[in-house]
């Protein structure tokens, strides 16, 4: 049990660090997916531990949301790349004060 949670924590941390330090939008996106799946793993582990299905259901919801997010996110990334010839998140900084 602890092993699953530890793995989940490790994956989440890797994802979070990746989001913070990587510039490439695709990689940032992958890291976000990593964090989502790390939480899925935690959900499922807790569901198993408590012996009910609540965590499983939550995991399914997260997958649906992640799928939708991938669709919109990739579309945005592609259109940004088309206009700017770059997929770096630091260059998409027009929305600032």
């Amino acid at each position: 049990m602890t092993a699953y949670l530890t793995l989940s924590m490790l994956l989440f941390s890797i994802g979070a660090v990746g989001v913070l330090i990587r510039r490439n939008a695709i990689v940032v996106f992958m890291c976000v997916e990593l964090m989502l799946n790390a939480t899925n793993l935690a959900f499922v582990s807790f569901a198993r531990q408590h012996g009910n299905l609540d965590g499983q259901v939550a995991a399914f919801f997260v997958m649906v949301v992640a799928a939708a997010e991938v669709v919109i996110g990739l579309a945005i990334i592609v259109s940004i790349y088309r206009t700017r010839r770059s997929a770096s998140v630091d260059e998409a900084n027009l929305l600032k004060a």
């Binding site: 989001v19 913070l20 330090i21 940032v28 630091d90 900084n93 027009l94 600032k96 004060a97």
Partner: peptide, 11 residues
């Protein structure tokens, strides 16, 4: 001032 425009700082 915190609104830098950098996605990563928001994150």
């Amino acid at each position: 001032k915190p609104q830098t425009g950098f996605v990563r700082s928001y994150a």
